[in-house]
Write a protein that binds this DNA or RNA. Structure first.
Lengths: 145, 145
DNA sequence: CCTAATCCCTCTAGCGACTGGAGGTTCAAG
DNA sequence: CTTGAACCTCCAGTCGCTAGAGGGATTAGG
């Protein structure tokens, strides 16, 4: 109905053009109709769908989770327990990462504060990296797998 | 001198075996001597080097940064300004991500708290994802690029 | 109607930082 | 000397994009 080009859709959602095509290629976003010349023509429903994905990504959900949530959204009479579970999981994950990042920040701050701005041999930044014993040692990895 | 096998090195540093080999392949970790049969034999200096990398990774430094820091560590009489800059940058990055994650946590909490545990059509989790207007809207993306 | 500028197409390959598996070799204890 | 654990190489896959090459489509202006 609205006949939106991919560039326009990109501007309206803040999702880059290659990313939109990528989402289509992995089945996250419905394939739109094409113009006579083969260009993608989106409508309001795609806009909505892509905003859903974008918002979910911003909140840190993985594409698999979003697929599941999208799926639920399309069946409004089913129970939302699964959605709730996914969101709670995500929240727990975010809390975990926050805790890790806070510990990391603490150590980075100490490193930076103690740097004497002299020579590498006296530099707290490099000393700390070389010897974990110099720091509290209870900062968990930030790896976000 | 110490003749450490890769498995032992892995256990001592908490770095997985394939990761150790990967580090060697990209030139992050010095290639060790080999046994007569071609197996890697590490010594104390590798242990130290790998702990340096491990600790840096735990603090969220990228491998390129760590390469630079390692390089500096090996030239103790040079100025540590560059090291300081890298660490400050990393700290700024961590602060940015903390801010993003906190915003994300806030919205996730609201989503979860308002879920009525009924049917998808009334589920705040899915409603929020569908319509960004329902939330404050100022949570920045968590993408960690 | 024609042209130029802008947009869009597919396809392939790459990023960072690993992780895992297949299929084969070596080491160390008994 | 045998056995089983540990090691080797090579390749492919993960996640979520992102970029570039080499072309075709669309659209606004003249």
């Amino acid at each position: 109905m609205s006949d939106i080009s991919i560039g326009r859709l990109s501007r309206r959602t803040g999702v880059k053009i290659p990313t939109i095509r990528y989402y289509e290629s992995i089945g996250m976003l419905d394939a739109p109709d094409r113009s006579a010349g083969g260009q993608r023509r989106y409508d309001a429903s795609h806009l909505e769908q892509l905003r859903f994905i974008r918002h979910g990504r911003d909140l840190g959900f993985g594409l698999d989770d979003l697929r599941a949530l999208q799926d639920m959204a399309s069946r409004p009479e089913t129970s939302c327990d699964a959605a709730d579970r996914i969101a709670r999981q995500q929240l727990a994950d975010v809390e975990r990462r926050l805790a890790g990042l806070r510990a990391v920040r603490t150590e980075l701050k100490r490193m930076v504060a103690q740097c004497s701005h002299g020579v590498v041999d006296d530099c707290r930044v490099i000393q700390t990296l070389s010897d974990h014993g110099l720091c509290d040692g209870d900062h968990s990895p930030d790896r976000t797998p």
